[in-house]
């Protein structure tokens, strides 16, 4: 029976899955939860890891959950250190294809380095939730 099967490259439609995570020592999760709920209402499956996660925790969760994108929220100022480490940890677990976006208190001056480190989008205080959802949707479809 198996010999008659023709399978190789396939395409299929899926409900997008998003991991919202808070790396490092920062307990301020209001923004992360707000974005999580907005993405849920946009029709995505959102997994929230909770606060104070290591980059390795986040990468393991992202890979096991097969999310289509990871969102990192950080208000402590350690984004330059922690965001790239999440990208690296994803790579070592076979998740190099999972895009990562960031949000929180991130000075404009850090944007360029974060982008170079593989962060695909950055949202700061004052970002409109509709814009966040639209931009993430765009990344998911690209």
């Amino acid at each position: 029976m198996t010999s008659t099967l023709k399978i190789g490259d396939v395409t299929f439609s899926k409900i997008p899955r998003v991991l919202i995570a808070k790396p490092g020592l920062d307990g301020h999760d209001r923004g992360a939860k707000y974005v999580a709920k907005a993405l849920r209402d946009a029709g995505m499956e959102v997994i929230y890891t909770g606060i104070r996660q290591t980059p390795e925790d986040i990468a393991a969760a992202a890979v096991q959950e097969d999310v289509d994108i990871v969102g990192l929220s950080l208000l402590s100022g350690a984004h330059n250190e922690l965001f790239p480490r999440v990208v690296q940890a994803l790579k070592s677990r076979g998740g190099a294809d999972i895009p990562v976006f960031g949000g929180g208190i991130i000075p404009d001056a850090d944007f360029a380095d974060l982008k170079r480190a593989g962060i695909c989008a950055i949202f700061t205080p004052g970002a409109r939730i509709d814009d966040i959802v639209r931009e993430i949707h765009g990344i998911l479809e690209s």
Binding site: I15, A36, K37, L39, R40, D41, A42, G43, M44, E45, V46, I47, Y48, T49, G50, Q53, T54, E56, D57, A60, A61, Q64, E65
Partner: peptide
Amino acid sequence: SSTDTGGAVLGDRIRMQDHFCDPQVYIRS
């Protein structure tokens, strides 16, 4: 899952943080 949008917040994993990095534990929501 939401019957309207198909969206969901899958929140069970948050209770299982102890095991995120254990290679012998696999968690899927």
